[in-house]
Design a protein around this nucleic acid. Structure first.
Lengths: 339, 339
DNA sequence: TTGTAAGCGTTATCAA
DNA sequence: TTGATAACGCTTACAA
């Protein structure tokens, strides 16, 4: 590179062509469709490639062919380990299919998501995977105009942009609440993450309410709380519910590490679980199974969501499928000692 | 897109130019250097851009200018939350500087790393960040030939490819071991991750040994163990050391969630910590501070490593700096109840 | 301040 | 099976 950051003097396909005594077109063919070229040429090209140290220029290739092998992914937070599993799943599948992954995080802001989407479209990605299901109008317009296929995977939204791969946050929260009711708990508290910009949180609370209504328990606002994510937040939620006059006999923490924070607080205070209060979590952190007592939770298909998202996207990109796709992956209740 | 995945009929700069009644060159300038264009033209171009819904084609731009704003990152595992912090740090800085991030994971294999590096160079990334410091010969050759700047950030390696931003795994492990010795522990066990392909693990064990030698404690092979990562692995390591005849009075778990698994095992067995055995960890998981007892550990600058890596890379790319860079970020011992 | 012309390094197309 | 030629959509370099 020169001082201004401009790449300089790279080996081009032309150099390979000269060395192999063929045209650049033949080199291109030998690399893309080896079968369409004579064995002799194939060998000469291969030799020339390694002799001159040729590294293909996919920027030029993409411009010429109007195709790319890059997928753009926007998650709310890269650091959050829940998303990390999904990213891993996506990455695994893309690598197997010789595609690349670009990542941006929105910090839970639709405006930042829009900026990320624009940047990806400017790079002419072949497809998009969005965790969120809430987008700015401008983002929706850009995506539709671009014609790029999209998978959303935060929740099984009823009105997807294009394709969805997820599980039902509503049904999962409802199932866990019903599970607690079936175990005999009657005053079931519920703690969720912030609802405003998060359809997943709203789905979960709706699921909780549906279950409460279904089994005929009274709705008590003193039993429902909205908290930011985090260990400390879970501990605080526990204390607020226990001292809020609602007298919960069980609490369902439907978000991130909230349940972990709550159960550690119980440990510190010497409160027996479920003797004093039962605790259920929403996500299958490894750790929940190793705590004392081990915590009842939901197993969500985080990794599988990533894999399937990448697969349906590639299917569409490669013309193996068209039209609407809505994949409902399963969740599962893991019943343990905390309830 | 048509059936073969070929993008079709996008709006080009030419369309903006026609609408704004200027040449494409003027549109290009108005977008890249608004100051170099008259206010009138600037306004007309801006209006035309939104009227036709223009989304710049950076593929064409990159080809033409031989510049790109994409950085490639290779980590051993995307799913591992330790790397997630670093990725978040990188992402934060890149976004602020209008750059994009491509990610690949090597699964701890140098060959997979080589493939990822090749793919990134084919995309003509402006820079590379590699977590690992062990590379194939071919990877090293490709990188040098390409002239792309590189930051390694897994450990403060003595022979970097180019730039390094990290902390000293050796010194961190040594410091913690000395800390334990200072507290009066005399039979200090040590558990590390696999050493074969991991310079970081080797550095840590060397640091432990250096400390043991420095304070004149005997080296006892029954006190040293090599384990895969994971909670279960930590629990198993604890039991093997406690029953292995070495009679440790403290154990230093220098890897991932090993310490967490060990302390949870102590909880389950009702072993007092540090009464029965003291426990120290290597990484600052939130949770370690909330366990009972809270666990002594090292605070490592994971996020900061990401930020600084991105910064030194951008400095080099943008010509603000040249030459060798080696940034030694700090670590810190967090003394808590478990020791 | 604006425009013209010539690439950037590939692949598509069509002809040989 | 191979090659010549013309894009792909932008930016550089230079001219007006």
């Amino acid at each position: 590179m020169d001082a201004a950051g401009k790449r300089v003097g790279a080996v081009r396909m032309r150099d390979v062509a000269l060395m192999a005594q063929v045209s650049t077109m033949t080199v291109s063919r030998a690399l893309m469709h080896p079968a369409k070229v004579s064995p002799d040429v194939r060998a000469r090209v291969a030799e020339a490639v390694s002799a001159v140290g040729y590294v293909a220029n996919k920027v030029a290739g993409s411009l010429s062919s109007s195709r790319s092998k890059v997928i753009g992914l926007v998650v709310p937070s890269i650091e959050n380990s829940l998303f990390a599993s999904t990213i891993q799943g996506i990455s695994d599948v893309l690598r197997r299919h010789d595609h690349q992954l670009m990542i941006a995080d929105s910090g839970y802001s639709p405006e930042a998501e829009e900026a990320a989407i624009r940047a990806f479209l400017e790079q002419r990605v072949a497809g998009l995977i969005l965790h969120d299901t809430t987008h700015t109008a401008e983002a929706v317009t850009m995506i539709h105009r671009s014609g790029v296929p999209v998978v959303e995977n935060g929740t099984l939204t009823a009105s997807p942009l294009d394709m969805v791969v997820s599980y039902s946050n509503h049904d999962a929260a409802k199932a866990m609440t019903l599970h607690l009711a079936r175990l005999g708990y009657r005053r079931i508290g519920f703690v969720s993450l912030p609802l405003a910009t998060n359809e997943r949180s709203r789905d979960r609370r709706a699921g909780y309410r549906a279950a409460i209504a279904e089994v005929g328990l009274p709705e008590d606002p003193r039993l429902v709380l909205e908290m930011p994510p985090g260990l400390a937040s879970g501990a605080e939620a526990l204390l607020r519910l226990m001292e809020g006059g609602g007298e919960p006999d069980a609490i369902f923490f439907a978000g991130d590490v909230l349940a972990m924070g709550a159960i550690l607080e119980c440990l510190r205070r010497g409160w027996p679980v479920p003797g004093k209060v039962a605790i259920a979590a929403f996500d299958n952190f490894d750790l929940l199974g190793h705590l004392v007592p081990p915590v009842t939770t939901l197993r969500l298909p985080r990794l599988e969501i990533g894999r399937r998202s990448a697969e349906v996207l590639l299917d569409r990109i490669q013309g193996r499928a068209a039209g609407a796709v809505s994949v409902d992956l399963r969740f599962e209740i893991i019943h343990r000692g905390s309830t």
